[in-house]
């Protein structure tokens, strides 16, 4: 009887908390859940998507967003070979210090260099973007709740503002997935904005999906190694636990 009373009590508490949570849910729209190839225990990155995503990042995102933890050499992780990486790096110019006169000088980037940021510092970035700071994208997928779904929803979710919404300033767009609705980033993707060398049609959805996967990789480049190690670990510990269970039973059987 007591146990039943207890369950009733538990249920009541859960219901009160649950309804309170629903009432308090924020007005921001929840990003719809999507399937990503890198999700789950056996999930792995789709290298082709990562390479397309890098292209979108390089040609579109990188004109406003930095990615300070991206070094050209890291791109081996999306399946580029050393020669490609070297050639790619050489397309960019970085500032080095210093020549014989102590002056900074410019040189072509090398694989060990960071992907150059679009602005020299945060102030310059704000000044060029109407006061809003385009966040660094190195960890963006981990820095947002349900990162992949959120970024995909944000990139594809621009729409006409509701009639009663008052824009807080010039040049802002309406995106229901962004907290507050008004976002300083104009819709970044348009049909055929990039041309994929593998012939994939560059629809907005395709580009959003590709660049999201690239950003997921950039947030967690060691994921595949982690999951592979995890599998070996789990199997080993499972065997070990089984052995010690049998051993324990054997030892304890002398007591019964």
């Amino acid at each position: 009887m007591n146990r039943r009373l207890f369950r009733v009590l538990l249920l009541a508490v859960a219901m009160v908390l649950g309804s309170a949570a629903t009432l308090l849910a924020a007005e921001v729209e929840e990003p719809p859940a999507r399937d990503w190839p890198h999700e789950g225990i056996f999930g792995r990155y789709d290298k082709a998507a990562l390479q397309r995503g890098f292209q979108v990042f390089k040609e579109v995102c990188a004109s406003c967003h930095s990615a300070r933890y991206l070094r050209f050499r890291d791109l081996a992780g999306i399946g580029l070979d050393q020669a490609t990486i070297k050639a790619l790096a050489a397309e960019f110019t970085v500032e080095d210090c210093c020549d014989e006169n102590g002056e900074p000088f410019e040189r072509p980037a090398r694989p060990a260099d960071r992907f150059p940021p679009p602005y020299p510092n945060d102030q310059a970035a704000r000044a060029a973007n109407g006061g809003a700071l385009p966040p660094d994208l190195s960890l963006i997928v981990k820095a947002r709740d349900r990162g992949e779904d959120y970024i995909y929803a944000l990139l594809t979710g621009y729409e006409e503002p509701p009639a009663d919404a008052e824009p807080p300033g010039e040049g802002v767009s309406w995106n229901p997935y962004f907290p507050g609705g008004w976002i300083a980033m104009p819709p970044p993707l348009m049909e055929d904005l990039v041309e994929y060398p593998d012939g994939t049609p560059a629809t907005v959805e395709q580009m959003a999906s590709d660049v999201t996967q690239f950003l997921a990789w950039l947030s967690e480049p060691t994921m595949e190694e982690r999951k592979r190690t995890g599998l070996k670990y789990m199997l080993f510990v499972l065997v070990l636990t089984g052995l010690f269970y049998a051993y324990k039973r054997k030892i304890w059987s002398r007591l019964h």
């Binding site: 070990l240 052995l243 010690f244 049998a246 051993y247």
Partner: peptide, 9 residues
Amino acid sequence: LELVSWSTL
């Protein structure tokens, strides 16, 4: 069993 368990550990 003892041998296998301890050596696995």
